[in-house]
Design a protein around this nucleic acid. Structure first.
Lengths: 191, 191
DNA sequence: GTGGACCTAGACAGATCTGTCTGCTAGCGT
DNA sequence: ACGCTAGCAGACAGATCTGTCTAGGTCCAC
């Protein structure tokens, strides 16, 4: 989605710059002027593509969703065809994310922290989390868990907790513990 | 702590106002002027008590730590004398927190999302999380878990995940799932 | 009553932020 | 050759933010 247009270079440069800066410094911590300067784009061009900062923020979140969802699915797929194994394998995406430097936690949760409850940004975050939850619930159902929604919910807690904790201390034990706990919960729920 | 001074009314009013506003709108979302206006304090008075906004932010986080740690300990204590039961009981604090309206997730994680990695705010967040972690590890040790640090780490993941998820959707199933998962993990680790 | 601590009221400076507007340039299809 | 689209460069307005400063009020101890 959102790639139906020819994707001109200016828009793409803006988005790539915003992606890096928003994630690294927070949304309110990065001004339009800085994005314009670092993406080498004229102000008028910027405002042609994104009429307001909020529009850029939403496009940023769409890209984050794309990237993170992709990593989650890839990690799950790498675990083989067994849905139960995939549920656990998805946690490798968490480990990989935390290991990257400049890692600063879940971009959605960070964005939601900066925006009021009814805002578009907040709603987008909610939609993203809901999407991950229902994907996990689908896998849990395929795996034959007796309470797929409950298992999926619990796994999202571990995932979100790992995303948050992994951003704080440098030690890599948060993703390891998350994966181990996920494995225990999945095998308990399936058999 | 931090109550050794006579605690004059102006400082307390500022702090109480900051507590509400920072949590509700984010730190960068609230200007000094607004805090001054809503706490009914003169600007000079404000800057006498808090030489810079950052100082107020740290005082705010200290208060958050006080309140949240207190709720956690109270919830654990309410579960009775058994340390294993206390580990699970602590999750009632999560449920209570999520139920309050205006709930917007963990104030520390939100604050860290708005501040760069080396900042004082970030460090304070790290210290708080470390404190909770070691408290849980102590309980886990008393409960006779074979890997108290690992269990404690996993429980913090559920706690942080619950704090984050509970802020997004209104449905109360996140804290319920967190508590249930905690109970399962604790009883598996203890016996 | 005098000095000091504590407070209020609000002007002010300087930076920064979002968003608008004017002018200019380059490519591209017809 | 012409117009259209996309883009660059940067001045500008208006709001807002942090932090300083002046000026004065109130209460209490001595």
């Amino acid at each position: 989605m959102a790639t139906s247009s020819p994707a001109p270079p200016a828009r793409e440069r803006i988005l790539a710059t915003a992606f890096a800066l928003f994630y690294a410094h927070g949304i309110r911590g990065v001004g339009i002027d800085r994005i314009i300067a670092e993406s080498g784009v004229a102000k008028a061009t910027f405002y042609k593509h994104f009429p307001a900062k909020d529009d850029l923020v939403l496009a940023y979140l769409d890209r984050v969703d794309e990237v993170w969802t992709g990593q989650l699915h890839d990690a799950a797929a790498a675990a083989g065809p067994d849905p139960a194994a995939q549920l656990v394998g998805a946690f490798d995406a968490l480990g990989n994310a935390c290991r990257r430097d400049g890692y600063r936690g879940c971009a959605f949760i960070n964005a939601a922290a900066e925006n009021p409850a009814g805002s578009r940004v907040h709603d987008r975050t909610l939609a993203h989390k809901e999407e991950v939850l229902s994907w996990l619930a689908g896998l849990a159902r395929q795996a034959g868990a007796e309470d797929p929604e409950g298992l999926a919910r619990t796994l999202t807690l571990l995932l979100d907790g790992g995303l948050a904790s992994g951003a704080l201390d440098a030690r890599p034990d948060a993703p390891v513990a998350a994966r181990a706990a996920a494995a225990a919960l999945v095998s308990a729920a399936v058999d």
